[in-house]
Amino acid sequence: MLPNINVVSLVSVGRHPQSGRARRAEQDGRAVELGLNLAGNTLTVVHAGNAQEPVLRQYAGMGLPSLTVLAQESDCDALPALVSFLKDKHIDVVLTGVRAESGESSGMLPYLLAEQLGWPLVPRVAEILNIKEGEAEVLLALPRGQRRAVIVKLPFIASVDNAAQEARQTAFGPGLRADFKVLTLERVVDEAASQWQINIAKPRPKRLKVVKAKTAADRMKAATAKPVGGGGKIMKDETAAEKAQAIFDLLLEEKVVR
């Protein structure tokens, strides 16, 4: 935990991928976890939306004494309210998820906040290593568990990746008792979004393997040939060295041994 760092975590209402039920959003939960590790009890957690939303208790159950709600309707744009809440508040770090699990899920919110507040943004943060002398050293999550170290000036906005530390368990009791500070700031209806047609996602068609065959024989072949490698190769009687070589060749071919 670092002293005298003002950290704000922004949280939204998540959506469980299997049941579609509202839940603590995966990345937002991690943003709160990261915030708690940085700032402990001084962490401010902010939600723009409905203060009656039960899911907020799940965030509070992570051990937050209070939670700030910028009250607004579901058709409002969260950005203006958040900007007016965050500016002129001597905040050092704002943590968000990469993409919300509900709504447009465009992932634009941290970028727009950064643009409007004029702060730098670091995307997909896995860890904040330290904060000192007005700078923070952060680790960005790259695919396949790789990391990149970046130094960013305070104040900054970070979107927290799934590779960050998992959100701690939410406890029923503290969640129930947490104090909600409800603020009413600007409410701006998201006009553009009201023009959209929103439907339940259609399953995307799988891309067909179109065979660009020039001849009948090629087309025949493509239509009748079994995919190669239905059954695997089994090595039984070769020497250990040969078997190991076969495995190693496969590893090289797949480029996993570098």
């Binding site: 991928p17 993409r99 509900s102 899920s105 023009q195 959209w196 929103i198």
Partner: peptide, 19 residues
Amino acid sequence: SRGASGSQDIRRETPRILM
């Protein structure tokens, strides 16, 4: 485009910037 963590399809006018 997909919205709400892939559970919705949002139809709109094609914007200038597309991901």
